[in-house]
Amino acid sequence: MQIVRPAEAFPATGTAATPAVAVVDLAKSFGERSVLAGVDLSIAQGESVALIGANGTGKSTFLRCLIRLTEPDRGTIRMLDDVVTDLGAAELRRFRSKVGIVFQKHNLVPRLSALTNVVHGIQSRSAGPRTWLQALAPREVREEAYACLAAVGLEDRALQRVGSLSGGQSQKVAVARMLMQRPRLILADEPDASLDPKAGEDVMDLLLRVAREKGLTLVTVSHRLEHAVRYSDRIIGFDAGRVALDTPSAAASVHELRSFFSDRTAA
């Protein structure tokens, strides 16, 4: 059976000369344990990249280092016209506002409504009490948040508490919050990991569609190899804190990727 690859059905449109992400010699250790041991990686504007690798090989740490949720020990990160590793606190906040991130856990506030959680996305651009709750938000912000919820197909759940939504729905609300940010680049750290296969696929479909529609770069960490193949243009394999595999997704098969894993774990 021919696998239909959404990543091919909607090809990347960006052709900018300067890469969206350029990482040189990125290193990070936690105590004695070296997690990133000098990563060099360049990602083109509009490209969808999947990061794969066994647990503890540094994929998630790499992603977190990109926006300095984890501070790298060494190396340079250039992203969206900024040298991320050189930014001060205020500049870092401004930079982060341009990068949307979806985590493995949705990381929403369960006691608040879906709409309020999406409104929180506006905090990338403004601050103050009117960004704290949908009930306080200005009309145009409420409208935009509602449109973001509609974009993920959950406009009918706007006033429902996130705590009462399913895992898949919550993850979509997290995507809506990310859209509210109007990001220029999307990072996703195992967005499909805690979801059932169908919901995981829905979320991956959604992320790729959003990225393609707006011509955004998408960097996804995934343990589901079939998702890595289907939803990316390029697959990067991490091993022992370094890039050990870099292949176009169209040329990769789940079978080959599985052997990449088993070779490493056997070693």
């Binding site: 949720l69 985590f103 990381n107 919050r177």
Partner: peptide, 12 residues
């Protein structure tokens, strides 16, 4: 989690 998510999007 929610706190980190907001910090990651540049909230004060």
């Amino acid at each position: 989690g929610p706190r980190e998510a907001l910090e990651a999007l540049g909230a004060t």
